[in-house]
Structures are given as C-alpha cells and as structure tokens.
Simulated assay, not measured.
Amino acid sequence: MISRVHQLKKILNNVEKNVLQIFGFPPRELAMAYTLEKRLPQPKKFTIKDIVGDGILLAVPKFRRTVEKRLKRKFGSPDYVWKMLIPKTNIIVCNSCGHYHERGYICGHCYKKVEAETKEIQDKIQEKLGNLKPIENDVIVLYNGENLPEQPKEFWQGKRIIEMKKDRPQWFSKNLLQKSTQQPSESKDVKPTDLA
C-alpha cells in the first residue's frame, strides 16, 4: 500500500515537471492549495486613553483671527455694517463720593467700600463662630457705642452677636440689616441725615 502511494506521488511529480517545461509555469488548475494553520492574532484590549492619547482634540480654531478681522467684528466696516460708537449721555456724579457712574447703576467707588466692609464683617463672623455652613441663625452686628435693642428673650434666642471694634460707617445705617418681611421700622435714624 505504501509503495503504491510512493509510485502515485512520483507519477504526479513527473507530470508536474513536464507541464512546467511546456508552459513555463504551473497552471492554476493543477496548483496545490495549502492552508497554514496559524492562529490569527488576538485583538488587543484597548482603553479610551489609548484612543485619546495625551490630550483631547477639540473643535478649536487652527489660526488666530487677525487684528483687522477682530476690529471689523467689534466696530463693523463702513462698506457693509458700520457699528458707530454712541456716546453715553446717562453719566452722573455720585452724591456721596463725587465719582462718575452710569445712571441706574451703583457707583463703583462706593461699591468697593461696601464690599470691603462686608468682607470685614464676614471675617469677624468666621473668626468668632468658626466655619459654620450654613449659618441658620441670624447674626447681629454691633459697632462701637451701640447697645442691643430692647426685645423680649424669645427674640434673642438662637441669634448670634458680633461686635466690630470700630465706629459704624456713615453710609451703613442700622435699617440696612432689617429683613424686608418685618414690620417697617419707626426709627428715623438714616445716615446721611440730609436725605430724610
């Protein structure tokens, strides 16, 4: 049986040699197909970091806008849409400090004073009461020479008193700390006094 297989193999080799000599190459019909049993590479597990890399590519402009384009966007162009600069006519002088500001808006100089005073009060509250968040009880601020108003004990229950060791600013009246839901005050102590 083995010898017959060898003979058949020799015959096929001879036929193949003869055919190669005639045509110069083996015809496709007689070519032997061979499959290599090689395992395909397993797909690698990848994460989003592998895709993104060091940074995320966002839809950002590639080039900077030129000065001319920026100015055209801001002021327009006389050939197309011309955005004229309109002078403001609603500028007034602040009654308390003398700085100019737009009508209907608070004076920037006065606002900085209010902001500084508020920050000072907040720092004093943090210093005395600690870092309480949220502060659920009312805080009463007393300046030099001020006493607690006469109220029943139930009124003072849970309230916190902060004493500022300086005089009350003229613009900071006592009525500013009253809640709007309370009854209107009978006090006419409004500073500066020429307004009342």
Rank of each mutant, 00 (worst) to 15 (best):
Ser3Ala: 10
Ser3Gln: 10
Arg4Glu: 08
Val5Arg: 14
Gln7Phe: 10
Leu8Phe: 13
Leu8Met: 14
Leu8Ile: 11
Lys9Asn: 15
Leu12Met: 11
Asn13Ser: 15
Glu16Thr: 13
Asn18Tyr: 12
Asn18Trp: 09
Gln21Ala: 13
Ile22Pro: 04
Phe23Trp: 05
Gly24Phe: 01
Gly24Arg: 06
Arg28Ile: 09
Arg28Cys: 06
Ala31Ser: 15
Ala33Gln: 13
Tyr34Pro: 00
Leu40Tyr: 11
Leu40Ile: 10
Gln42Thr: 11
Gln42Val: 08
Pro43Ile: 04
Lys45Gln: 10
Lys45Tyr: 01
Lys45Ser: 06
Phe46Val: 05
Val52Lys: 01
Gly53Ser: 01
Asp54His: 01
Asp54Trp: 01
Gly55Phe: 07
Gly55Ala: 11
Ile56Phe: 07
Leu57Cys: 06
Leu58Val: 12
Ala59Pro: 08
Val60Trp: 00
Pro61Arg: 10
Phe63Val: 03
Phe63Tyr: 07
Arg64Gly: 08
Arg64Gln: 13
Arg64Val: 15
Glu68Tyr: 04
Glu68His: 09
Lys69Leu: 10
Lys69Gln: 14
Lys72Glu: 15
Arg73Pro: 00
Pro78Lys: 08
Pro78His: 03
Val81Thr: 09
Trp82Lys: 14
Trp82Ala: 09
Leu85Phe: 03
Pro87Tyr: 01
Lys88Cys: 08
Lys88Ser: 11
Thr89His: 07
Ile91Pro: 02
Val93Asn: 15
Cys97Met: 05
Gly98Thr: 04
His99Val: 02
Glu102Leu: 11
Arg103Cys: 02
Gly104Met: 04
Gly104Cys: 04
Cys107His: 00
Cys107Trp: 00
Cys110Phe: 01
Lys113Leu: 13
Lys113Pro: 03
Val114Asp: 03
Glu115Pro: 12
Glu115Asp: 15
Glu117Val: 02
Glu117Asp: 06
Glu120Trp: 03
Glu120Ala: 12
Ile121Gly: 01
Ile125Leu: 04
Gln126Arg: 14
Gln126Cys: 11
Glu127Asp: 13
Gly130Phe: 03
Gly130Cys: 02
Asn131Asp: 15
Asn131Gly: 12
Leu132Thr: 10
Lys133Cys: 06
Ile135Val: 08
Ile135Phe: 03
Ile135Lys: 02
Asp138Thr: 11
Asp138Ser: 12
Ile140Met: 07
Val141Met: 03
Leu142Val: 07
Gly145His: 07
Asn147Lys: 14
Asn147Thr: 12
Leu148Met: 08
Glu150Ile: 11
Glu150Gln: 13
Gln151Thr: 06
Gln151Ile: 01
Glu154Thr: 15
Gln157Cys: 07
Gln157Ser: 12
Gln157Val: 06
Gly158Met: 02
Gly158Ala: 03
Gly158Gln: 07
Gly158His: 06
Lys159Asn: 05
Arg160Phe: 00
Ile161Lys: 00
Ile161Gln: 03
Ile161Tyr: 01
Ile162Cys: 00
Glu163Tyr: 05
Met164Leu: 09
Met164Thr: 06
Asp167Cys: 01
Arg168Thr: 05
Pro169Gly: 01
Phe172Ala: 01
Ser173Arg: 10
Ser173Ile: 05
Ser173Thr: 12
Leu176Thr: 08
Gln178Arg: 15
Ser180Ile: 04
Thr181Asn: 13
Gln183Trp: 08
Pro184Leu: 08
Glu186Tyr: 10
Glu186Asn: 15
Asp189Leu: 05
Val190Asp: 09
Asp194Arg: 15
Leu195Lys: 14
Ala196Val: 12
Ala196Tyr: 13
Ala196Ile: 11
